[in-house]
Design a protein around this nucleic acid. Sequence first.
DNA 1: GTTCCAATTGGAC
DNA 2: GGTCCAATTGGAA
Lengths: 173, 173
Amino acid sequence: MPGISRATQTTASDLLLAVQLRLEQLQKLLPECKVPQAEATVVGIEPKHGNSFLWHEASGNSIVIGGNQTRANQALYEAINWDCYSLATRALLDAVFDKETLASRTLTGRGRRRNGGSGQLDPLKVDDIIETVKRKCQVSAILIRKIIINKCSDTARSKRFKRAHNAPSRRHN
Amino acid sequence: MPGISRATQTTASDLLLAVQLRLEQLQKLLPECKVPQAEATVVGIEPKHGNSFLWHEASGNSIVIGGNQTRANQALYEAINWDCYSLATRALLDAVFDKETLASRTLTGRGRRRNGGSGQLDPLKVDDIIETVKRKCQVSAILIRKIIINKCSDTARSKRFKRAHNAPSRRHN
DNA sequence: GTTCCAATTGGAC
DNA sequence: GGTCCAATTGGAA
């Protein structure tokens, strides 16, 4: 089914469904695709996994990377230097997730021994990030995953450090 | 200087030096080179870094891998399956180092926080191992290094576990 | 009993 | 303050 066959569509809802399916097919074919927020809501496409959606709405346009329609902050995305896969991966993580999410989740959700973090980073978004970096930097997925592990760890540590030193220091006024 | 020029050699020691240099050049060009123990001693070639040398003498023929004349147990080397780089790296480590060395050293010698291990694995031998696996398995050095880190860690843990459980259990006779 | 992966931590830059 | 690497540890396979 490479396109939309008019002969098989009878109702408006069928047509809408077919259009949405066709849109998803096309987006899977595109490496990245700029989709302004307004346009996406007008055509009625709900993000498949939109739990950490608010931060992109608050901070400007977003673009779609990968076949899972993962959204990334456009300004941050366009500033990424793809010459170094580790820096690119870290920057892309910052463009997709907010700091709080990066600090409280891990790649798989396993092994929450010390922090009170709950679950794992959205696997669909992670897949899109990995595919993007793999294509742009020509590097294996396993190495990208190690960078993601480190990024979560470093972000959590940074946040812990700030909590420990900034909160008490506000007392000395 | 692709060969040995007779015109420039005057004394026997010069000739011997030239022969040794030429041998090293040739060995650098060879992927691996079987050198029985006896032959090596007859021609007077001392290993460049021969501190953990005894275990190979005690357990059969050895072969030379890499440009640093690193020796590996021949039987273990020839049993290596190069289809999986991680298993190949681990097996090659077992063919070059004894268990005690693997358990007490680390890749760089850094961070001996818990065990009483002294230093690092011989960097020249490590280089030869990395070059060998890289060539045979077409995998990057960074991944091979991670396997070496894990192998030392796993070996140390295994030895600790055995010490803790085997030693006391011999009392019950 | 070993291998493999992920999380965590220390420390250097 | 973030990035990077290595060592360590837990746990699954």
